[in-house]
Nucleic acid binder design. Structure first.
Lengths: 344, 344
DNA sequence: ATAATTAATACAATCGATTGTATTAATTGT
DNA sequence: ACAATTAATACAATCGATTGTATTAATTAT
């Protein structure tokens, strides 16, 4: 069975293919009656518009490319959910690609997205991405780029959607203080990553604001795996048996600490209140459930996609350093629900 | 800056665009010297091949469409990872779409994939998908379809990659028996879904094989949320205080049961051993960690993609009911590690 | 040295939809 | 009723790459 094109329809109806095209696109240059006839015939013949041809002619693909390090990470998949929802509403398709944290693959992906003439690109760069020539190349091809979450410095012509890590950490720490904690520890991550530096800053700032002295020995650094959490919990308790609150830079390490506290009979949250960071899906499932900071991947995705589509719609006036900073949200759960110390 | 096409390159080098095209495609109809010249010029001019034009002409998009209910579910995102890896190796692009469990959206997606002339479609149908006209329509357009995980009955011309749920459940139950459990409960899901029926069957079969009488009252049914797990745990213990093993049809409900057992002082695994199903990322993080059945999304994705690409490569000889059934794997963790009862 | 063969490149049609311009048909005004 | 205007449709070029066929150049054979 041959592929049905507008030309077949035109022939069958004895009209010109341009009329068919206009009818299918609901142009006002064609009568309602003709439209009806065309639509009918199209359905009858099982016509499926060829987007390749359409896109080629219009020089628009109505498609945006999304590049993330790894699709199976919850944060990214929820980001994608947000992007998809937004794009979908405006009739855009989404091509999703994963760099697997490798610059080389990321470069290939970008090359490919350009070749496919996407209308724009959303990217959260890989850990291996130090330089951004491949991204600059997008702009050369008049394809706007918006970073979300992980971004590169020095690209003023690209939009950015970031989360305020410092604020998130501040809120987490403040929450612990408001729950009556006086001796609050902090598990930090590799200082090479900006997010962990910012979270540490937020922690410090909250302490300062509430007149709690900052003590370096309350801050431990690791890769924040579950085992690290356990080890750090052990270590911090040995040094500070009076610990009554803990703010972890991610949920995984919080779960590790959790486990250790339980084995030695410390109760959570009665003896030690815990707040994590990220709101991983499992943090609602722990016992007690884990208070944490929600980065809302969905929100980030929506914001990034909105920013990108706005610029596409504006006919690609280059994005001059437009940066959206989102506020993370505290998700209060069991691990921090201790009776507030009565002050009066 | 104008978009560079093969024609610009041709003009610049004073050759014909067909020669440029062939040079770029490394055809043997053009001299090595000319190829070199063309490649050089192409790079110099910043040429980016227009895939839309190429695909239109070749009537191939080198792209496959993937449709899943929800990208943020770990199982699906790991499936996609497997698909991507396989497709990528063979030079195929992947368009990922989510139906959000709605037939209507799924239909739109399929429509769109056909319009974009994808070379094939991989789909795990939505819960709302009862009929498959939209999928039949793919075959009408000579686009092969392969189901993975969730499939529709009555489509002999589409490939299928499934997991043997019954076997998985059998292994889970057998494992509990081998760990010395005698009174094994089972949390089942909505019986409308085949997977839960099959898991129940596997549970029964294991009991039978090991001469343990099947008792209906040891099987509870729910939607398998965390709260359901907690409730069911409470209920089953009330009726059967001698419960010493529990096989849950998913990890989430297992975590719920977990929590309840702990609050009433039942130890896991010493008093009650637990096995879940799915190997969600959080199941390695619970305390103790959860023994479970791994469905290996990656494997399924790879298998499905391989099957599809095989048929695309074969020039779309229709897939006559090729079905691949994968074996789930038992992941032994803490929640089932009790000393094996000495028999002698 | 010329015919025969092969290699290298040029020409032109094609993929299917879109769109500016031209043409014909229908409507309105006077 | 005829010109003027507007509505509806037809024509033809275009998007950029591919590919079968034709042509020219280079090589080999006789």
């Amino acid at each position: 069975m041959k592929n049905v094109t507008i030309h077949e329809i035109a022939k069958a109806l004895n009209v010109n293919s341009s009329t068919v095209s206009r009818a299918l696109n609901d142009s006002d240059r064609v009568t309602a009656k003709t439209k009806r006839k065309v639509l009918e015939k199209a359905k009858e013949m099982g016509y499926q518009r060829n987007m390749l041809a359409s896109n080629l002619r219009r020089k628009k693909s109505n498609t945006i490319g999304v590049v993330v390090p790894r699709i199976s990470r919850h944060f990214f998949s929820s980001t994608i959910a947000g992007i998809e929802e937004t794009a979908y509403k405006l009739g855009f398709n989404v091509i999703i690609c994963q760099s697997l944290e490798e610059l080389e693959k990321e470069e290939l992906i970008i090359e490919n997205l350009i070749a496919n003439r996407v209308d724009g690109i959303l990217i959260s760069v890989s850990m291996g991405t130090k330089k951004g020539e491949h991204l600059a190349n997008c702009l050369n091809n008049r394809i706007p780029v918006v970073f979300f979450d992980r971004h590169l410095e020095g690209f003023p012509d690209m939009g950015k959607v970031l989360i305020d890590d410092q604020l998130g950490a501040y809120r987490a720490t403040e929450h612990l203080i408001q729950k009556g904690c006086k001796k609050i520890g902090h598990f930090s991550g590799p200082k090479s990553l900006l997010i962990y530096k910012n979270r540490l800053e937020g922690y410090k700032m909250a302490l300062k604001n509430y007149h709690i002295p900052y003590d370096e020995s309350y801050v431990l650094t690791s890769k924040l795996m579950k085992e690290d959490g356990l080890e750090m919990a052990k270590k911090i308790l040995k040094e500070h048996s009076d610990l009554d609150g803990l703010f972890c830079s991610n949920d995984t390490s919080a779960v590790g600490a959790f486990g250790y506290f339980k084995t030695i009979g410390k109760r959570v949250p009665e003896d030690i209140a815990i707040v994590g960071f990220s709101n991983e899906p499992f943090s609602a499932l722990t016992e007690p459930s884990l208070t944490t900071i929600d980065q809302s991947g969905e929100e980030i995705g929506k914001a990034a996609c909105t920013l990108l589509l706005k610029h596409i719609a504006s006919g690609n006036t280059l994005i001059t350093n437009e940066t959206v900073i989102l506020n993370p949200k505290l998700i209060e759960r069991g691990s921090s629900q201790r009776q507030t110390a009565t002050i009066f």
